[in-house]
Protein backbone atom coordinates (compact mmCIF):
# COMPACT_ATOMS: atom_id res chain seq x y z
CA UNK A 1 0.00 0.00 0.00
CA UNK A 2 3.00 2.26 0.49
CA UNK A 3 3.38 2.90 -3.25
CA UNK A 4 0.19 5.03 -2.96
CA UNK A 5 -0.15 8.67 -2.11
CA UNK A 6 -3.39 9.90 -0.63
CA UNK A 7 -4.33 11.35 -4.01
CA UNK A 8 -3.68 8.19 -6.00
CA UNK A 9 -5.28 6.03 -3.30
CA UNK A 10 -8.50 8.05 -3.21
CA UNK A 11 -8.59 8.02 -7.01
CA UNK A 12 -8.24 4.23 -7.13
CA UNK A 13 -10.83 3.87 -4.39
CA UNK A 14 -13.26 5.95 -6.45
CA UNK A 15 -12.63 3.70 -9.45
CA UNK A 16 -13.22 0.57 -7.41
CA UNK A 17 -16.45 1.88 -5.93
CA UNK A 18 -17.65 2.79 -9.42
CA UNK A 19 -16.74 -0.66 -10.78
CA UNK A 20 -18.53 -2.40 -7.94
CA UNK A 21 -21.55 -0.13 -8.21
CA UNK A 22 -21.79 -0.77 -11.94
CA UNK A 23 -21.81 -4.49 -11.24
CA UNK A 24 -21.43 -7.22 -13.84
CA UNK A 25 -18.31 -8.63 -12.22
CA UNK A 26 -17.59 -12.16 -11.15
CA UNK A 27 -17.74 -12.97 -7.47
CA UNK A 28 -14.00 -13.56 -7.51
CA UNK A 29 -13.26 -10.15 -9.06
CA UNK A 30 -15.73 -8.46 -6.74
CA UNK A 31 -14.09 -9.94 -3.69
CA UNK A 32 -10.63 -8.98 -4.93
CA UNK A 33 -11.75 -5.40 -5.67
CA UNK A 34 -13.49 -5.14 -2.34
CA UNK A 35 -10.39 -6.25 -0.50
CA UNK A 36 -8.28 -3.73 -2.40
CA UNK A 37 -10.84 -1.00 -1.75
CA UNK A 38 -11.06 -1.75 1.95
CA UNK A 39 -7.26 -1.51 2.17
CA UNK A 40 -7.28 1.82 0.33
CA UNK A 41 -10.03 3.22 2.54
CA UNK A 42 -8.00 2.31 5.61
CA UNK A 43 -4.87 3.85 4.09
CA UNK A 44 -6.69 7.11 3.23
CA UNK A 45 -8.17 7.31 6.68
CA UNK A 46 -4.75 6.85 8.26
CA UNK A 47 -3.30 9.49 5.95
CA UNK A 48 -5.77 12.01 7.30
CA UNK A 49 -5.12 11.10 10.90
CA UNK A 50 -2.11 11.86 13.06
CA UNK A 51 -1.62 15.32 11.69
CA UNK A 52 -0.10 18.06 13.78
CA UNK A 53 0.91 21.32 12.18
CA UNK A 54 4.67 21.77 11.73
CA UNK A 55 6.30 25.04 10.80
CA UNK A 56 9.80 24.90 9.37
CA UNK A 57 11.98 27.79 8.31
CA UNK A 58 13.07 27.73 4.70
CA UNK A 59 16.58 28.56 5.95
CA UNK A 60 16.69 25.23 7.81
CA UNK A 61 16.07 23.22 4.69
CA UNK A 62 19.16 21.88 3.00
CA UNK A 63 19.95 22.59 -0.61
CA UNK A 64 19.93 18.90 -1.53
CA UNK A 65 16.33 18.49 -0.34
CA UNK A 66 14.15 16.71 -2.84
Amino acid sequence: MSEYTYESAIKRLQEIVKLLENGGLTLDDSVKLFEEGAGLAKFCNNELKNAEQRIISLDDIGEEQQ
Binding site: I10, Q14, V17, A38, A41, C44, N45
Partner: peptide, 18 residues
Amino acid sequence: MMNTASLTERLYGAVGSY
Protein backbone atom coordinates in the same frame (compact mmCIF):
# COMPACT_ATOMS: atom_id res chain seq x y z
CA MET B 1 -12.48 12.67 5.89
CA MET B 2 -16.14 12.85 4.94
CA ASN B 3 -15.27 12.00 1.35
CA THR B 4 -13.21 8.99 2.45
CA ALA B 5 -15.96 7.87 4.79
CA SER B 6 -18.60 8.17 2.09
CA LEU B 7 -16.45 6.22 -0.39
CA THR B 8 -15.91 3.53 2.21
CA GLU B 9 -19.62 3.37 2.82
CA ARG B 10 -20.29 3.07 -0.89
CA LEU B 11 -17.65 0.35 -1.18
CA TYR B 12 -19.32 -1.75 1.49
CA GLY B 13 -22.74 -0.90 0.11
CA ALA B 14 -21.77 -1.94 -3.41
CA VAL B 15 -20.41 -5.27 -2.24
CA GLY B 16 -23.40 -5.74 0.02
CA SER B 17 -25.85 -5.25 -2.80
CA TYR B 18 -23.72 -7.38 -5.11
